[in-house]
């Protein structure tokens, strides 16, 4: 009975596409987070900055810490990615990009459905997130 009624609920195709992509991205993200952290704390790859160094500076403001030690920030890890801390950082980057990946899939569905208003809204939302990812929206130094 309940499953029949569940089927009666009309869920947009775009919402199902978004949910499927989100499912994949969030699970992948969690696996990456666990694997990256494991490689970091068990020193399977050498860190850019030793964990002890970070622990002796983590009481400082982020900007002060960066004047003293160079931990990964923004896209800085790209130039030298084969480090434990960089790998763990990449997994966090991936999680922070999850919404943008899902929105891109929703945008293509809106576009195919010729849903003009939501195509524009989704595009603007992607643009805001892309500006943040690129460091244009206040993050870049």
């Amino acid at each position: 009975m309940s499953s029949e009624k569940q089927k009666e609920t009309a869920i947009d195709r775009v919402q199902l596409v978004y949910a499927n992509v989100l499912d994949f991205v969030s699970h992948t993200g969690m696996v990456l987070v666990a694997a990256g952290f494991f490689a970091y704390v068990f020193r399977l790859l050498p860190p850019t900055v030793s964990i002890e160094d970070i622990a002796s500076h983590w009481h400082m403001k982020a900007s002060e810490m960066h004047r003293i030690i160079k931990v990964p920030a923004g896209w800085s890890w790209v130039s030298d990615p084969l480090h434990g801390d960089a790998l763990s950082y990449v997994s966090i980057i991936f999680l922070s990009m999850a919404a943008m990946i899902c929105l891109t899939s929703a945008f293509t569905v809106f576009l195919k459905e010729r849903n003009r208003i939501y195509t524009v809204i989704a595009f603007l939302q992607i643009a805001v997130l892309a500006a943040a990812v690129a460091g244009i929206a206040g993050g870049g130094s």
Binding site: F37, A55, A62, S96, A99, L129, G139
Partner: peptide, 25 residues
Amino acid sequence: LSMNGAAAAWVYLYKGAVLPLIAVP
């Protein structure tokens, strides 16, 4: 929240205010 949090998180990422040692646990 998943969209707003992602947007703000990037400001923190660029300012070096995300440490995997704290964020992941």
